[in-house]
């Protein structure tokens, strides 16, 4: 990710008075050309009734800068990202050093951890893709 461009964009939201609504991480399972998997991270900002999202795809170990200097409440999401997903967030205003959650599994939502659970369930290969959408009776 382009950290400078990302932080500049986040700072614009801050200066324009938006609030941080959620930071969401989704693990992308290992696949061809992406052996260790990846993370899709969305930073969502709200202003009145609007909500906008900034999304980045980062690789495991890749540095993700904290936005807690602009949005103080981000530290909670960022500690969660690191503890549950293993995202390498740097520069958090309040670093809880792994004490936020007391989970029995270390980084339970890391791509490799999810892959291992799916393999154990006999779902090593992704289920076949079907036509999307719904049919109404």
């Amino acid at each position: 990710m382009d950290k400078d461009a990302f932080l500049a964009r986040v700072d614009r939201y801050h200066r324009d008075g938006w609030r941080l609504a959620i930071i969401n991480t989704t693990s992308i399972l290992p696949a061809e050309g992406m052996d260790g998997g990846a993370f899709d991270i969305s930073w969502s900002f709200a202003s009145d009734q609007l909500i906008e999202h900034v999304r980045e795809r980062v690789l495991p170990g890749e540095e993700v800068p904290s936005i807690s200097t602009s949005f103080g409440a981000a530290f909670l999401y960022e500690n969660e990202m690191r503890e549950l997903f293993g995202v390498n967030v740097t520069g958090m205003a309040l670093d809880l050093k792994g004490q936020l959650y007391q989970t029995s599994t270390i980084v339970p939502f890391a791509p490799s951890a999810i892959r291992a659970r799916l393999d154990a369930l006999g779902r090593g290969d992704p289920a076949p893709k079907h036509e999307a959408g719904a049919k109404k009776a």
Partner: peptide, 23 residues
């Protein structure tokens, strides 16, 4: 309505719970 099929896509949904906004 009866819903069949397999979903594809993603969504953010917001509600006002008693304690405030849930996403």
């Amino acid at each position: 309505v009866k819903v069949r099929g397999l979903p594809t896509g993603e969504v953010f949904e917001r509600l006002e719970q008693p304690r405030g906004e849930v996403i």
